[in-house]
């Protein structure tokens, strides 16, 4: 009746088998792509392989890297947060407005982080308690948070932040092009990576994304997990807002408009499935760097910054559509006329 090839007790695969699987996996492929892009760019684009290039590359992608960490967990858990860039903007505006009114910068930043947590909690509440789809909720809070940001400052910009703080943000480790803030990212990435890949909570993230009902039957508190993921997303977005304010020395209501798309694109390019349950944090970090490297290489090669948006869009579609099309073509070739019943639109 069954077609199990092997009749022995299944064992853990050997280290070698596991290594092979990693090397044939998606993370390895995207890393190879990153290496290839860097190599080709280094050889063909003048000034690409300089410390300055890397310095600016890291500074530019830093906010995306920060927000991509919680976004990875959210998307793996089959949720999405489109309000991140608006929260970044709101956080930036709060830092600016409070600082302008004489608050110490550190306190203003702290308030921004708290507001980030509250905003994330609002998303989490609407999704887990009210039971709304996260897509709809975060489109709403995207408008709301951005609206608050724009409402508070209007079209004004707050500038004149203390140079000490600004210098700290753009400082780099002596002799390298690596900004100091990257150390913060490494710490955070390790924290998120460990949670996702080596804790019970991480296992639940995957389980919830693949099948929330079965995860609940296995004793997982899926609602609570989802709620805290949204809070984490709000806090990290607010942190990115603080960074953005100091990095560009300007707090404006329209800071980072549209950045949520870059983050989602990076997460998907990094191998996370939009359907949830699949993907890994290293892949996402590489995905962000890949997009960043591509952008800076193109910029150095005098390609206009606008082409880069097209590249991002096409890359996004290609990485997401490609596997599905390949699988489908393969399936069609194997069994013509057989169509799985799954695959609702949307």
């Amino acid at each position: 009746m069954t077609v199990d090839q092997v009749r022995t007790v299944p064992a853990a695969p050997s280290t070698r088998t596991r290594l092979t699987r990693v090397l044939l996996g998606r993370d390895a492929a995207i890393t190879a792509l990153l290496v290839a892009v860097v190599l080709v760019a280094s050889l063909t684009v003048d000034n690409f392989s300089t410390a300055t290039t890397w310095y600016f590359l890291f500074l530019d992608v830093f906010p995306i890297l920060l927000i991509a960490l919680p976004m990875t967990l959210l998307v793996i858990a089959a949720q999405i947060d489109l309000s991140v860039a608006s929260m970044l903007g709101l956080s930036s505006v709060l830092v600016g407005a409070l600082y302008e009114n004489g608050w110490p910068l550190a306190v203003a930043a702290l308030v921004a982080l708290v507001v980030g947590a509250v905003g994330g909690a609002l998303n989490g509440f609407l999704v887990t308690v009210v039971g709304l789809p996260s897509l709809a909720v975060t489109i709403g809070t995207l408008a709301l948070f951005r609206g608050l940001a724009v409402g508070i400052l209007g079209t004004r910009a707050v500038t004149g932040f203390p140079s000490g703080a600004q210098d700290l943000v753009s400082a780099h480790f002596a002799g390298t092009g690596i900004p100091v803030v990257m150390a913060l990212f490494v710490v955070l990435a390790l924290a998120f990576g460990v949670v996702l890949h080596a804790t019970p909570t991480g296992r639940l993230v995957y389980a919830a994304g693949l099948n929330a009902e079965a995860a609940r039957f296995a004793g997982g508190r899926v609602g609570r997990l989802t709620f805290w993921l949204f809070v984490a997303s709000g806090v990290m977005s607010a942190l990115a807002g603080v960074y953005w304010t100091l990095r560009y020395g300007s707090a404006r209501g329209d800071n980072a408009v549209g950045l949520e798309l870059s983050v989602v694109a990076a997460v998907l390019v990094g191998g996370v499935s939009i359907f949830g349950g699949r993907g890994a944090l290293p892949g996402v970090v590489v995905g962000v760097l890949l997009i960043g490297a591509l952008r800076s290489a193109l910029r150095l090669a005098d390609v206009s910054s606008d082409v880069i948006n097209v590249v991002t869009g096409v890359l996004l579609i290609a990485t997401v559509v490609g596997p599905g099309l390949v699988a489908r073509a393969r399936g069609a070739a194997r069994r013509p006329g057989t169509r799985p019943s799954a695959g609702a639109p949307g």
């Binding site: 709809a136 809070t141 709301l144 951005r146």
Partner: peptide, 12 residues
């Protein structure tokens, strides 16, 4: 400037 915030509230 508050228009967008109103939109957000309306959507939610």
């Amino acid at each position: 400037f508050w228009q967008q915030a109103v939109v957000g509230v309306l959507i939610i």
